[in-house]
Design a protein around this nucleic acid. Structure first.
Lengths: 150, 150
DNA sequence: GTGATTGCAAACCTTTTGCACGCCA
DNA sequence: TGGCGTGCAAAAGGTTTGCAATCAC
């Protein structure tokens, strides 16, 4: 959970960069700050638009590549989506997702039981697991009425 | 599981179309047949390439739209992927996925316990649920060695 | 006959790639 | 200084849209 302050998180971020031999550049800091502000599920472009406000000269590519770098470093996650632009998730704590197949909304939810699910034994042996999420798909409250009205 | 014959499944498909007021066109039949053959996780283009063999005059758009139509009708599912082209899943029985974040492989697995997971009560009340999947992300057996070699 | 479906083509959007320059360590 | 990181621009890849012609019912 996000009990740590902005400063603490920024500090931890820089530590993580050092640990992974990632150079600490103004651009990376700007991207990370934007991610801390945005608790939703931003696309690369969403992040770009936000970072731009404080860092007008940054390029989209830098933002996009930075996001991929952060993902490889485990600082953020890539969301599982039903197609469409890639979405990132700055929240790396265990949580789960609901996807509306009509409006595309992704709704986070927490669920202790799901968090505690054990991984299949063989998989744990053979693979290196980073994340486990329950994804529920359907029509959200706003869309469930219109489902047959196609 | 797929104990029913090709003929049975085709028949069930046509029944489903009638039930949903979908016209039974040669194109839709061709797409459905291609899906029955392909047990992997095809993209729209994968399906297109396959259908083409038996139906050279079909257009990509028709295939793509047909897949979306089938999804809305609940005949197939859209896979949750970390970006990239949309993938479809002709297997609508309960199963779960592992995603390798390095090579992009999607591996199906079955897991009774995961199948039996109960949905969050409130969600079941408010939303219309179509599917529930556990998605595990990480490095697969082939890729786990190369993870630090970036 | 009528409305749903198809084929075609263009537009749109996102992601990837290559390369020269610049900056962090 | 060396090599990683950045910015720019072009290309590639996938999806969506509009419209006229066609087909299933």
């Amino acid at each position: 959970m996000h009990i740590s302050s902005r400063q603490d998180r920024l500090h931890a971020f820089m530590e993580a960069c050092r640990r992974q031999n990632l150079k600490i550049t103004p651009q990376r800091i700007a991207v990370y700050k934007a991610l801390m502000d945005n608790t939703r599920h931003p696309s690369a472009d969403d992040v770009f638009q936000r970072v731009r406000k404080d860092f007008p000269r940054i390029s989209f590519d830098t933002v996009n590549r930075t996001l991929l770098t952060f993902t490889e470093a485990g600082l953020i996650h890539i969301l599982e989506t039903p197609g469409g632009p890639r979405r990132f998730d700055p929240d790396t704590s265990s949580h789960h997702h609901f996807h509306c197949i009509r409006c595309g909304r992704i709704i986070d939810f927490c669920h202790d039981l799901y968090d505690k699910l054990e991984l299949p034994e063989e998989m744990e042996k053979e693979f290196r697991i980073l994340k486990k999420t329950v994804v529920i798909t359907g029509y959200c409250d706003r869309c469930r009425g219109s489902e047959s009205a196609s």
